[in-house]
């Protein structure tokens, strides 16, 4: 396997993870504030926190495709 392949996969996965982390770092405090105001919204806050995980999942899919299909 050429060296570009794992590097490419790492970039795909890593950038996705950074994107998710950045988004969750913004949603987390907002969610905590929301729960402090209205504890009944805890479920909604957790779901909102899970939404940006799509980015890292897609990054993972692309990384897997790079490694296994190229």
């Amino acid at each position: 396997m050429a060296w570009e392949v794992p590097i490419g996969a790492a970039i795909a996965f890593g950038v996705g993870a950074i994107g998710t982390a950045w988004a969750q770092s913004r949603i987390g405090p907002a969610g905590a504030g929301t729960i402090a105001e209205n504890p009944e919204l805890v479920g909604a806050a957790i779901i909102l926190l899970a939404i940006p995980e799509t980015l890292v999942i897609l990054g993972f899919v692309v990384a897997a495709m790079i490694i296994f299909m190229i």
Binding site: E53, T54, I57, L58, F60, V61
Partner: peptide, 13 residues
């Protein structure tokens, strides 16, 4: 299409 790809989490997680 993004929604469909999102189901990849079933395998990834």
């Amino acid at each position: 299409m993004g929604n469909i790809m999102s189901y990849a989490r079933l395998m990834a997680i």
